[in-house]
């Protein structure tokens, strides 16, 4: 194909998008609605998971060290704890610090006990994956010099199950919405192409090959897909930011930590626009190709 013919077909596709304004607006509208709904469902699911992740992070294993452990033993235990798998942070509190902390709370009740080993040294461990808490507790319990291990295993189990449920339910809802959206979009494109079947028929009689006829429709579909992706992105950007700011500015302090774990739009903006553009262009382009096929048999 000559370069002139190729640019002609590209121009035809762009021109047809404008000429068939009503159908273009309908297609962009349907595609935008679907992309926004699917996008918001995904964002909601991701945010719930992020909040659950934050709450999970608040759960920690507290390891109390045997007060009779020697300095060498303490040094070895410290190395062993810091080398454990699945631990995201380790916070050590010495016997003296523990006493100071309690002294601040209890005051003169503890006066005179400064040199006694009332409070053992401890480690506060945060986990990367809460579902592995029982394995961690078992490993730590077997270490030399452990006085006691406190771990919220029941809470951890509930949190893990909640996260799994949200992940599965979120995926099912997003997939269902995607399928419904695809069906609606395909039908909209079919109607668009159907309204122009006479045009396709004429082109066939003039001797145009199938690929020659399809090219402008492909370009048109891709343009509509890209426009819908951009509109969807801007809509989601605006709406999400409004909701995010609304929640962040009107939240009681006990939930402020959870709000801090909401995903800011900036963090997902690039991923979202790329995903939207890829989906819009692919759905628009392939939808047009598939819909024209039926009318090419003349």
């Amino acid at each position: 194909m000559r370069l002139g013919s190729f640019t002609y077909l590209l121009k035809q596709g762009a021109k047809n998008t404008y000429i068939n304004k009503a159908m273009s607006i309908a297609s962009v509208g349907v595609l935008t609605a679907c992309l926004v709904i699917v996008g918001f469902s995904m964002l909601l699911s991701e945010n719930i998971k992020s909040i659950i992740g934050f709450v999970q992070q608040q759960n920690e294993i507290i390891v109390y060290v045997d007060p009779s452990l020697s300095a060498d033993g303490q040094s070895l235990l410290d190395k062993q704890i810091r080398a454990l798998d699945n631990i995201s942070s380790v916070e050590y509190t010495s016997k003296e610090e523990a006493f100071e902390n309690q002294h601040e709370k209890l005051g003169e009740l503890l006066d005179g006990y400064e040199n006694e080993d009332i409070f053992p040294a401890s480690y506060h461990l945060k986990m990367k994956d809460l579902s592995l808490i029982e394995d961690n507790v078992e490993t730590i319990s077997k270490l030399e010099g452990i006085y006691k291990v406190d771990a919220p295993t029941d809470v951890a189990e509930v949190m893990v199950k909640t996260e799994q449920t949200v992940t599965v339910a979120g995926s099912v809802v997003v997939i269902a919405l995607l399928v419904v959206s695809l069906v609606i979009i395909m039908n909209t494109i079919k109607i668009t192409v159907f309204s122009r079947r006479r045009e396709i028929n004429i082109m066939k009689y003039v001797g145009a090959t199938n690929s020659f006829i399809r090219m402008p429709f492909l370009v048109e579909g891709m343009i509509l897909g890209a426009v819908a992706a951009t509109v969807s992105f801007l809509l989601v950007w605006y709406l999400y930011t409004q909701i995010y700011n609304g929640v962040a500015n009107d939240m009681t302090s006990w939930l402020s930590g959870a709000v801090a774990s909401l995903i800011p739009f900036k963090a997902i903006a690039w991923k979202l626009i790329l995903a939207y553009l890829a989906t819009g262009i692919l759905v628009g382009g392939f939808g047009s190709l598939i819909s024209t096929r039926k009318h090419l048999k003349v």
Partner: peptide, 11 residues
């Protein structure tokens, strides 16, 4: 023009 374009005629 369209009829000529399908024959890959030059601009």
């Amino acid at each position: 023009e369209f009829a000529m374009r399908v024959t890959n005629a030059s601009t």
